[in-house]
Design a binder for these strands. Sequence first.
DNA 1: GGGCCCATGTAATTAGTTACATGATTAT
DNA 2: ATAATCATGTAACTAATTACATGGGCCC
Lengths: 193, 193
Amino acid sequence: MDVKTLCLGVLATEDRSGYEIKKTLEERFRHFFRAGYGSIYPALKELERSGLVVCEAVEQQRRPAKKVYRITDAGRRTLEEVLVAEDPRHVVRSEFLVLMYFAHLLPAERVTQVIDAMTAEFDRILNADLEALEQVYDTLTPGQRFALGYGRTMLTAALGYLHRQRGGFLRELQPTEAVDPELRNGGLAAAGD
Amino acid sequence: MDVKTLCLGVLATEDRSGYEIKKTLEERFRHFFRAGYGSIYPALKELERSGLVVCEAVEQQRRPAKKVYRITDAGRRTLEEVLVAEDPRHVVRSEFLVLMYFAHLLPAERVTQVIDAMTAEFDRILNADLEALEQVYDTLTPGQRFALGYGRTMLTAALGYLHRQRGGFLRELQPTEAVDPELRNGGLAAAGD
DNA sequence: GGGCCCATGTAATTAGTTACATGATTAT
DNA sequence: ATAATCATGTAACTAATTACATGGGCCC
């Protein structure tokens, strides 16, 4: 499943230009898929070439003209085929966790800074991006709600974990003051949620 | 941050061959980073070329010889520099959620099958892979425990969400029987956890 | 005047996956 | 005998990112 499939999926609901598809992806797929113009425009061109979408230039007042794409019947068939045939992957690639994993090799301030930056980013996604989606909850399909709810659940869990672990973790990284074994054990217990 | 950095990080703790690095990544980074031989071997070659690791061939009885890599001082410096300089990303790319997002375009059985497969995979990672790590909890650094705990928290939250939402979601996808608006509202409330 | 939004696109580069190629030993 | 594990590597390919290139309109 690549950006071509994504575009086809977005176009299955409504005709859109490449630019508008990018906006849609930013609004709705932000927390689980991202794509830039550098992959969207070539994808649309390729979809057109293979007859899965058609394209119409639309002039606008006081705006550059845009190329609006519409999915064809062949496109709908292909979309369903792809979504039925491929087994979907769920890949997390976290340089953040890699850095945490190697925390003992780094200055504690750096670790602190990275945790706080990650917390801020998660918080922003949850409270700005996903909140905006809640506003239009009624207009969403069950699947869109499912994906939204999944994102909300994961971000909430992540923020909770960061909040609970931050203090104890950073204390453990300080080699200067000896850590009470009881406390370290407390860290273990706290990790269990 | 690429596979080169990962290898350097793993070697910062202990000398290892490419094959052993792969095993380590599978055991310990499975839920947030993966790399195959096709990226690990070239990475080690490049690290050696730039003097960040050195390599020694080790003959073994009844086993093929292996090339054990050791990190150099320059390697340790570079590793820290990279981990301090780059701001780490945390990227989720979920074809699973894409498929859920487009669930209304698919047969309900397909959606069911995909949810159940995802559930099984999460369950396996949580109960086999991460459980094995708990066995050696005492030998882990705080950072390794942090990463482990994060993974456990996320997987538990994901499994909880899938478990809670599965029934209601699949019912909503059935267009045959009309859905009681009250129930649909119930789905909304349930999504709020 | 500066910066952002709308709007489309290409080229070079990066990075990683997949498949191929080889081969001994060990366990079932 | 057959599969799995140990062990290394390359070549072709796929896919996406980043940077570049262009240009009008709108808002402060």
